Simulated assay, not measured.
Amino acid sequence: MNRPLSKIIPRCKQNIHPWQIRLSHWINLLAMICMIMSGWGIYNAYPLFPFTFPQSTTLGGWLGGNIAWHLATMWLMAVNALFYLLWGLFSGHFKRSFFPFSSKSVWRDTVRAFTFTLPHKLGEYNAVQRLMYVSVLLLGALLVLSGLSIWKPVQLSGLVWLLGGFGSARYVHFFAMSGVMLFVVIHVLMVLLVPKTFIAMITGGKKAHIQESTDE
């Protein structure tokens, strides 16, 4: 007597990180390093606080060179960000990976992280990671707006006004950059704690995809 096969469960492998994410991630890393180092050189010419960055950590050699590097890299980062944002929106990546989260879930996963009981699955973000990724995207938007107002204060006088004036725009730009750098530091620490995430961002990684179907 033959028993009917009620379910077929094929298994296949798919990338944890699609090539679009990996490409934009590594381009963004290169652009961010150049933007930060050249930005520090610009900051040193007109410090906001009673400290400057070591010359060895700047890019460009002098103020004109710092500005040239900053503007050139700005276009690379802008094109890369536009590609990532459009792909993230239309592919459903943002909705699928970054939402939903709540203050309750963020607090829960924060406690788990500090007690080393937070589970980690490649390709799946916990509530803290989701909050951080959404926050860094917002900080990136603030960096762009404040940067444009500093670059073109006359042409974009309305934007400068919204940011509280040219001087305030510089502070906004500095603190937004500091927020992004804090994200990078935490991100690197997480990679050191879970090294397999670094390999997955290079190779794409593989995960099993299970699909169930019935056979009548």
Score class of each variant (00 low, 15 high):
32 M>G: 11
48 L>W: 08
61 G>H: 04
36 I>C: 07
51 F>Y: 15
40 W>Y: 12
13 K>G: 07
13 K>P: 11
37 M>C: 14
52 T>C: 02
34 C>K: 15
34 C>I: 09
35 M>G: 04
70 H>S: 05
62 W>G: 13
29 L>Y: 04
67 I>K: 08
12 C>A: 05
66 N>Y: 05
40 W>E: 10
13 K>S: 07
21 I>H: 06
65 G>R: 02
32 M>E: 07
51 F>S: 07
67 I>C: 06
37 M>V: 10
30 L>E: 15
42 I>Q: 14
25 H>A: 04
24 S>F: 09
66 N>F: 07
31 A>N: 14
63 L>I: 01
46 Y>F: 06
70 H>L: 06
70 H>V: 00
56 S>L: 08
67 I>G: 07
44 N>V: 03
18 P>Y: 04
24 S>Y: 08
28 N>A: 09
54 P>T: 03
14 Q>L: 02
15 N>G: 02
44 N>K: 12
36 I>M: 10
61 G>P: 05
70 H>K: 12
53 F>W: 09
56 S>A: 13
23 L>Y: 05
53 F>T: 04
20 Q>E: 02
49 F>S: 03
50 P>W: 02
48 L>Y: 11
42 I>G: 13
21 I>C: 04
42 I>C: 14
21 I>E: 02
33 I>Y: 14
35 M>T: 03
25 H>P: 09
48 L>R: 11
33 I>T: 10
61 G>F: 02
37 M>L: 14
69 W>N: 06
55 Q>A: 09
59 L>N: 03
33 I>E: 04
30 L>A: 15
56 S>N: 10
43 Y>R: 12
22 R>Q: 03
69 W>I: 01
31 A>K: 06
62 W>T: 12
65 G>Y: 00
65 G>N: 01
32 M>A: 13
64 G>A: 07
63 L>K: 09
56 S>D: 13
27 I>E: 14
51 F>T: 07
61 G>W: 01
36 I>L: 09
56 S>M: 09
28 N>Y: 07
35 M>Y: 15
25 H>Y: 05
32 M>F: 15
24 S>T: 08
39 G>C: 12
50 P>N: 05
22 R>E: 01
57 T>A: 11
59 L>K: 00
14 Q>M: 03
38 S>W: 08
59 L>D: 05
65 G>V: 00
58 T>V: 06
69 W>M: 03
61 G>V: 02
12 C>F: 13
63 L>E: 09
59 L>Q: 02
18 P>V: 00
47 P>A: 03
39 G>W: 12
